[in-house]
């Protein structure tokens, strides 16, 4: 299957960037410690903030670091598509008998898998050794977490794909990409869990697609979502994934139909 091969190729490709992976790993771990101590101070003052106990809050921090490169910043991934649209290299991709969106989704999933292994597992393990985390003992919960993280990556991809396609009209989509990344950091729960936000903002933030990137997977792992809550979380992610991918297809069709491919 072509798209499996594309994903496998992307996985192998990102595996060749060993120094970058090691540097990212160190960054994630250091940030994990900084955020963990900040959270500890906060939860000492306000125990059960947002309904989380201190161990759950710390688990939230380290889950965030584990998924940072995978779904939030998504180092590499669609940045390259953005650059290919800007430079006109996209012409090469359009000459292939392959679907542009599926191709890049497959490549992004391959990238995410490598970054989960390369930059996800170690920070979470370090966090678990250094702090008392509320990690599940039940393998099924880990399975649900991985599914939720996968859906998070798909939503993340669908958002980044839309931003990258804007380059067909904007000529350079890097400004939009920056705004989108900042919004993602805030509304995914990376800065603070969304449930900690004040009243209406918490409710709103939990309806936005960025909640699918970290808030939902972290709640699955910490056990804040179980039973119907778990199911509703996964459906929420799947619905955003489907809606944003469909929108991406519409934009893609418009882009390839009437827009100029840059460069001679």
């Amino acid at each position: 299957m072509l798209y499996v091969a594309v994903a496998a190729g992307a996985f192998r490709r990102y595996a060749t960037y060993r120094a970058a992976t090691a540097a990212g790993l160190a960054t994630n771990t250091v940030f994990g410690f900084l955020l963990a101590y900040a959270y500890l101070a906060l939860w000492q003052q306000r125990p059960h903030l947002g309904g989380y106990g201190p161990a759950q809050a710390l688990t939230f921090v380290w889950t965030g670091q584990a998924l940072l490169a995978v779904a939030l910043i998504a180092v590499g991934g669609v940045d390259e598509l953005q650059e290919r649209i800007r430079s006109g290299d996209i012409a090469v991709d359009l000459h292939r008998p392959a679907d542009l969106q599926l191709w890049w989704l497959a490549a992004d999933l391959g990238r995410a898998a490598l970054q989960l292994i390369g930059r996800g597992i170690v920070p979470l393990a370090v966090g678990a050794l250094a702090f008392p985390l509320a990690l599940p003992a039940d393998p099924a919960t880990w399975g649900w977490f991985l599914l939720s993280a996968l859906l998070g990556v798909v939503v993340s991809f669908a958002l980044r794909y839309l931003v990258a396609l804007s380059g067909f009209w904007l000529l350079d989509s890097s400004g939009l990409a920056l705004i989108s990344a900042l919004a993602g950091m805030f509304f995914s729960g990376m800065v603070l869990p969304l449930r900690v936000f004040p009243g209406g903002l918490a409710d709103l933030a939990q309806l936005l697609p960025w909640a699918a990137l970290l808030q939902v997977p972290a709640d699955v792992l910490t056990g804040a979502r179980t039973g119907t809550g778990l199911l509703r979380g996964l459906l929420f992610q799947a619905a955003w994934a489907a809606a944003l991918l469909a929108l991406g297809r519409l934009v893609q069709a418009a882009a390839t139909r009437k827009v100029v491919v840059h460069g001679g």
Partner: peptide, 12 residues
């Protein structure tokens, strides 16, 4: 074949 662009996978 576009002389100034490549279809090959750069890092593989």
């Amino acid at each position: 074949v576009l002389g100034q662009r490549t279809t090959l996978w750069w890092d593989l």
